[in-house]
Amino acid sequence: MDLVYIAHIGVILFTFFMLLNSAAVLVLMERKVAAFLQQRLGPNRTGPWGTLQPVADILKLLFKEELRPLAADRWLFALAPILSVTAAFSAFAVVPWGGTTTLFGLLPEPVPLRVADVNVGILVLFAITSMGIYGIVLAGWSSNSKYSLLGGLRSSAQMISYELSYGLALGAVLLLGNSLSLTDIVNQQSGYWFGVIPRWFIFIQPLGFVIYMIAGIAETNRAPFDFPEAEQELVAGYHTEYSSFRFALFFLAEYVNMVTVSAVATTLFLGGWHGPFLPEWLGWLWWLAKLFALLFFYIWMRWTLPRYRYDQLMHFGWKVLLPVAVINLLLTAAAVLYWG
């Protein structure tokens, strides 16, 4: 067991732990931002500035009674939240969150700050994201309840519809980066144009970025696309019958998915850990800053926009977003062919 090997494992465990933590941070952020947008104070009793509120939330969920409908499919009812969380966590594995580090010279060779650099990284991410649908569909079906089933069906229809635009937006970046590895793509975004503008892909692919974010919000079932759990019509959608820790797992999966979508947007469009003013070894601070800017955008959207109607969502996805994404991809391909 040499030091580098241990450091690799350390990075993996750290990434996992921080992903878990990010859900807690996001819960607090969501509550606080929502409160400020609605001119309230938000949680401020548990801990200083309400910082212990996520802990209280988690403990409450843990100690709640576990309920399962009698007519539910026992195994699938238990399996569904696990599938959701597994897909959410494993998708993050290919996202690099920093350059390399030697821990101030402690390690003999630099260790990259990511779980895995797969040479088909983006496709892996896309494949795992598409597996995430199963958790939601099965939750809806196995609960044996009408609200849950409708929620699950809506969600899968929505995810399938928006996955296409999501993939096409990613495809345009792949053409620019000429690689499927996320680390390669980030490294191509270092440096500046004319000495001032960072070489981030968002400046060549503004349309791609907008398509990606819209499709990403729809993929993660967040407002204004949160039909699977539209409270007014479906009680709570696919997790209506879930309680206690199983519900907490769905909750966790939703937040981790948000983090993954934002992290991928950071990596592909915003130059990953590259940015001005900071030395290379502090690049992960840039990464975090960009990530949280996007997460803030997510929360901001949720508390600002009303929910669409379901037919509007489908119409928008298939007849507006998808054609625009196809045109964007074709134009990018033509441009790469001409100038590349």
Binding site: N119, L123, A127, Y134, I160
Partner: peptide, 24 residues
Amino acid sequence: EFLAVIQVLVYAGGIVVLYLFVVM
């Protein structure tokens, strides 16, 4: 690897979801 990922993406993540839809 490429074929493996495409297998997951197209079959496990795409086509079978539609099967599930129909069955449900």
